[in-house]
Design a binder for these strands. Structure first.
Lengths: 140, 140
DNA sequence: TATATATGATTAGTATACAAACGACTAGAT
DNA sequence: ATCTAGTCGTTTGTATACTAATCATATATA
């Protein structure tokens, strides 16, 4: 008789990753006083870091699919946090850049985001956090 | 003059978690030959583990919001992988259970899911994997 | 130059994910 | 017995996330 393989969902790395990500999102939502989601924040933080980028570039740098980044940029544009204009060098591209308001918002949000990171790894020592980041990075 | 805090997106635990989760989902999608998403698989695996459960219970055990688990169960029901009936003990509840087909499908999928887990942590030694799971579990 | 290939962006469709508001029902306290 | 607090489930709305199809534009190369 063929033995049934045991499969305990809660022991699987994928399920654990999902739950840890959920907790992070939850911390982000409760700690971020501005109307910013994790992805909207990520897009703006990357624009602050890198300056104007094409939409696809921004997506690649924030690990968002081209369809996903489009929605994120659209919602940021509605809120006047970013604006886009044609790239004079390449007619296919839309250059996305922070507005003045967008820059103010992201600057104001960064301390809160650092606090989110801090709270997320609250249960770990500094050494454990470093080790965790090292191990996770190996999985990319 | 107030110094601008540096914020490097790629160093933040939340962003790294998101990317690792994306990679896991991608492995799942390519390795799973059946028409199963990670959440559909998780719901069925938990039903196999625990037997019939109410919809809300199933959601809690799989870390899905009540609105999310509803959609997942609906889609599983359309595919005749689960069925629901009134709980005779509590008129509010719908008891969700695997169908015969559902049981066959989840049993067949388990080896593939174990392979997904294996590939996800491929870059780590056994000891590193154990350490990673331990650290992640502390964050829950 | 002509063409093949690659890249940028949009759209449609499916599937999570969560908040908020609602109605139905249970169980515990009084 | 009734009131109340909590639970179960649905629905609506917003926001990711990815696939596939499509179209426009660039670039490389034959």
């Amino acid at each position: 008789m063929k033995p049934t393989k045991t499969y305990i969902l809660d022991d699987q790395i994928g399920h654990i990753l999902r739950k840890v990500s959920q907790r992070h999102t939850s911390i982000f939502t409760s700690e971020m006083p501005l109307d910013l989601t994790p992805t909207r924040f990520a897009a703006m933080a990357k624009l602050l870091e890198q300056g104007p980028l094409s939409q696809n570039e921004l997506g690649r740098l924030t690990a968002m699919d081209i369809a996903t980044i489009k929605g994120v940029v659209d919602r940021l544009r509605v809120r006047k946090l970013v604006e886009s204009k044609k790239d004079p060098k390449d007619a296919r591209r839309q250059l996305i850049k922070l507005t003045g308001k967008g820059e103010d918002v992201i600057q104001a949000a960064i301390p809160d985001a650092l606090e989110v990171t801090k709270q997320t790894v609250d249960a770990l020592t500094k050494a454990e956090t470093k080790q965790l980041l090292k191990l996770l990075s190996k999985l990319l």
